[in-house]
Design a protein around this nucleic acid. Sequence first.
RNA 1: AGCGGGGUAGAGCAGCCUGGAGUGCUCGCGAGGCCCAUAACCUCGAGGUCGUGUGGUUCAAAUCCCACCCCCGCUACCA
Length: 645
Amino acid sequence: MAKQQTFYITTAIDYVNAKPHVGHAFEKTITDTIARWQRLQEKDTYFTTGVDENAQKNVQAAEKKGVSVKKFIDTNTAAFQELCAKLNVSEDKFIRTTAKEHAIVVKEILEKIRKKKDIYKGTYEGLYCVGCETYYTEKELIDGKCPEHKKEPEKRTEEAYFFKLSKYEKQLLKIIPTYVTPPTRANEVMERIKKDGLTDICISRKGAQWGIDFPNDPEYKVWVWIDALINYISGLEEKEKKYWPAQVHVIGKGINWFHSVIWPALLLSAGYKLPEKLVVHGYLNTDGEKISKSLGNVIDPLTLLEKYPADVVRYSFLRCSVFEDTDYSEELLITRNNSELANKLGNLVSRVSTLAETHGLTKVKPLETKKVIAQVTRAFESYQTDKALATIFAFIDSLNELIQKAKPWETKDTKVLYQLADGIKTAAILLSPFMPATSEKIATTFHFELTKKQLESPLAVHKIKKASILFQKIDMVNKTTISPSTYKKEEVKTMKNPPISSISDTRKGDVISNTSDTKAHKQTAHEIKREEKQAGKISYDDFSKVELKVGLIKDVKPHPNADKLYVLTVDLGEDTPRTIVAGLRNHYQPEHLKGKKALFVANLAPVTLRGIESNGMILAAVNDDDSHVVILQPEQDIPPGSKIR
RNA sequence: AGCGGGGUAGAGCAGCCUGGAGUGCUCGCGAGGCCCAUAACCUCGAGGUCGUGUGGUUCAAAUCCCACCCCCGCUACCA
């Protein structure tokens, strides 16, 4: 007998410096659906998901909250586990990278790479700001100075461990086109390799306190990305032999580079087989609509799951395109629940089960379903769960048409009722990876099992009882609204980032990132700010230091090197007009500013912004999330240069 | 500016990879049918220069290639 085929599938592991957001839920749902489909195909499936707990940023985030790092990650990890449970995610293992077993595997693999002579000690040279205790890339500097301290950083070198990524350039270029899907994501990476080439990457962090020790050199920690990627192997534990290589890694587009390039290179070096497919999904765009942005609606998946059944939430994700970015909103969920789940599927099951209860079923040749099954199978082969779902719902539509045409309530045609019931069986089994609980309910009503075998054989006739309501309709008014204050802006930003870590710091492979300790500084800055707030008041003397004047905007030009900035030419009643840079481009058209009088700060120290020196500042009123910006103007006409007191 | 996504009916989308009559889906609108079902379901209809190019390739372009315009996201910038 042939050995049962295995199927190993993973999600990316999530970065736990904040609570889970819809993107995480989206990825888990897609991956879970593929895993369940493979199980339905009778493959021996292993599915892992989990969290990346070793990132340096956790240290800072924890300190900010005033809790220990361990406690901080435990709390957030629990939220991710809760998400999986409530979403009905069927993972076989939830990985935590702080687990001892994980660290052991990381060390083993690094040892293999070292033996291959792909690790060497070199010197990292970078621009170091003493105040921040961190390295900056030239791109991050403003005017050649540290953005926090406005001081020029010094050139510093330190010893570090490097991985010979460059060695694998040719091999990678060869494998990426077949490994990475969709092709645009493969091209993206190929282009970058061809353009910039691959340089060796620094894989150690000196003096970091959080993370996995570098083998044989406790002065260093392993760079978090290396540690994170290895979860795909460490998560298998003793099952490694059985399941590796993975069939699929599902990841978000933001972390494509790490999975397309660094991960296979590490595996090649360590002598592992490569995973078969990297499925790179797009993002759910939750503030695509301006309306929800101004309302401050942040869609929290755990809140959604409290309000709506898991299957409804899952369905709302799974209808979104896997590969493209999609706008996602709670309205969308409600519309889909009502018109697709309740009206189409739910209502169909309800009608057929009621009619079957009163009239019974007579076994005849079922409807043709091979085509639908083949189409769904094909969609799964290319990991387009959204297409698979659309195909199933087109089939459900055809059942609705059939019942309407055949009018079994009039004809009492139990043969048609059988065909409908058999069709529902097919739909329910095909839907079981998407909405497991719903399929289970339908299976109970019509007496079948959610197996491959029953998918391919006609429905056995049983006495049917009317089904209970599958999907309740949702009132639009009941929509969840979360006030902006629930989430700090900063948090939302991090959450929108791809699960593991930031990309910018590895852009050129010259990585000692700015993730290392800026905390000392940041904390003091924070304290100062807080003190200022507590004091809250300034003296008149302080106020009088600010020189406010009326200015006439004589000209408005877009900043040549920045999207959000205008360069204003302003008459402040002086001999020559001043150049003032203002961030108004998203809020005003040039013609609405030109010729107007507005209020300016006249004695602000000049600053160069993206290459243009600004000599003052325009005053504007701003709402909470900066979405609405209004310039201040004198109520009546008054000459430029007039003072404001 | 860098990277990414998009522009298809009043709104939101699919179709594009692999070219074959503007085909389809959800919402909305108009008319009708049905009375089994969750006020659901079914049929028909109105509504389109498929962003622009009187650009290229082709017998044939929403689809492939080129140029341009606009929108959105992330990052930078809001003195």
